[in-house]
Amino acid sequence: MSKDEAAIESEIQAKGLTAPRLTPEHIDAQIVSEAFHVFPGTTLTVCALTLRNGFQVTGESAATSVSNFNEELGRKIARDNARNKIWMLEGYLLRDFLHQMTPERIKRRSQLYRDACHMNGVTHLPDDTVVQLVLDDARRYPV
């Protein structure tokens, strides 16, 4: 988390803004690996971040002058540029998730879970278990 992100996060918390939102920690938790490549004879550095679901995002950096090129700094900038793309992707997923969570859709999902359990010989699931299952799978199984 950058200093700017930490300051923004502190301000959000201080203002009591508690609606569903993305956090820097959530963004970082999506990253499972990273790979870098500096193209020979150039200052172009590319970072590929692999996310938990296997999707990859890339970021690039390039120095305008070979004499100013520093591989460590190029990697940092390229990684930051790749990481920034995750915010948009995760923002879309969160907004879609919230769209799916209308009362009617939650009720329909709950009934689908109960029907599936009954078909598989499970005669009773506590309501809180059903709610958790619905929330866990809402993104994966749009109704």
Rank of each mutant, 00 (worst) to 15 (best):
K107W: 11
R95W: 10
L17P: 07
A63P: 01
S67M: 08
N53I: 04
Q132T: 11
F39R: 13
P40R: 06
D128E: 12
A14M: 03
Q30W: 01
N84W: 04
V134I: 10
S65N: 11
M119P: 07
L125Y: 00
A62W: 02
A7D: 13
F39Y: 15
L98T: 00
L89D: 07
R79H: 15
D127I: 09
T102Q: 11
V143F: 15
S61Q: 01
R79K: 15
G121I: 03
T42I: 00
P24C: 06
R95M: 15
F39D: 09
D80N: 14
R105E: 05
L22P: 03
A82F: 01
T43G: 01
D96T: 08
I8L: 03
K76L: 13
I77W: 02
L51P: 02
V143G: 12
K76T: 03
S67C: 12
D137H: 07
T64E: 09
I31W: 00
T23N: 01
A82R: 04
A78S: 01
V131P: 06
V66M: 15
L17W: 11
F55Q: 14
L125F: 09
S61E: 01
R109E: 07
T129L: 10
T43A: 05
F36Q: 01
E5T: 13
P103Q: 03
A35D: 11
T43L: 01
Q13S: 04
K3I: 14
T23F: 02
H26A: 11
L135D: 04
D136I: 10
F97Q: 09
D137E: 10
I12Q: 00
D115A: 05
V66S: 15
I27W: 00
A35M: 05
C47I: 06
T42N: 00
E71H: 11
V38A: 15
